[in-house]
């Protein structure tokens, strides 16, 4: 196993997060391990064999270009964006790296997600009250398709209908959060138009930047 530098540790978090969008969390951990062991010291163009191994090893339904783009995006994140200083020193166990990602960055993303969605819905309601109501209904009607089921689904529905941010929806994973946001974006385009939606998204991001919670963290990282 190669020596884990701070950069590799941090980059592995980003790669893990990018893989989570396309494969299960367990597989993403294994895949990140493979990357650390075999590819972390290789140049960027070694991404192809890495992707080959992923498709040979795991059951992946995502089209290859999409997965490749996702991993490439993670690998191309500049060192300045890696926040190496904020990383603790870990043992050589990848799981620690991954757990760190889950415990810190993920929680922050979760909070950011709730704030983002609530604020965006608030903006939509100012422009189209009917539209906002229909969007909320359509969103929780589609929760099953997003893989949000059982008790979590009930909590998300309650969060969407009661407009109460104290309701806990921490069980949502990154993929589900992305899908939920994306569903909201598509519906918003339909009800208030794509140009206005983009403007409102930009406004919400600016508002979020002002929050103390996101000091030193780009709210765009939520997605």
């Amino acid at each position: 196993m190669c020596k884990l530098t701070d950069e590799i540790k941090t980059r592995s978090i980003i790669i893990y997060n990018s893989l989570c969008i396309n494969i299960s969390e367990q597989d993403a951990i294994q895949a990140t391990k493979i990357w650390i062991q075999k590819f972390s010291d290789k140049p960027l163009f070694a991404i192809r064999p890495f992707i080959d191994i992923l498709y040979e090893t795991f059951e992946i339904s995502t089209p290859r270009p999409e997965l490749q783009r996702s991993v490439l995006s993670a690998l191309m994140t500049g060192e300045a964006d890696l926040n190496v200083k904020e990383i603790y020193v870990f043992d050589d166990d990848v799981k620690d790296v991954v757990n760190h990602a889950k415990n810190t960055e993920f929680k922050l993303k979760h909070k950011g997600f709730k704030i983002f969605i609530s604020k965006l819905l608030e903006c939509i309601s100012k422009r189209s009250l009917d539209g906002e109501l229909v969007i909320r209904i359509k969103l929780f009607d589609n929760l099953n398709d997003m893989g949000v089921t059982g008790e979590l689904s009930l909590r998300v529905k309650k969060w969407l209908t009661d407009k109460n941010d104290s309701i806990d929806i921490d069980g949502l994973n990154i993929t589900q959060m992305k899908q939920l946001f994306h569903g909201l974006y598509v519906l918003s385009c339909e009800y208030i138009g794509p140009v206005v939606t983009d403007m409102e998204v930009a406004n919400v991001i600016e508002e979020m930047k002002e929050l103390e919670l996101f000091e030193g963290f780009d709210p765009k990282e939520v997605f």
Partner: peptide
């Protein structure tokens, strides 16, 4: 600002 990503150029500038 409305784009939820940074893109190559922005990263390079950073």
């Amino acid at each position: 600002n409305h784009l939820l990503h940074k893109g190559k150029l922005q990263q390079e500038i950073r």
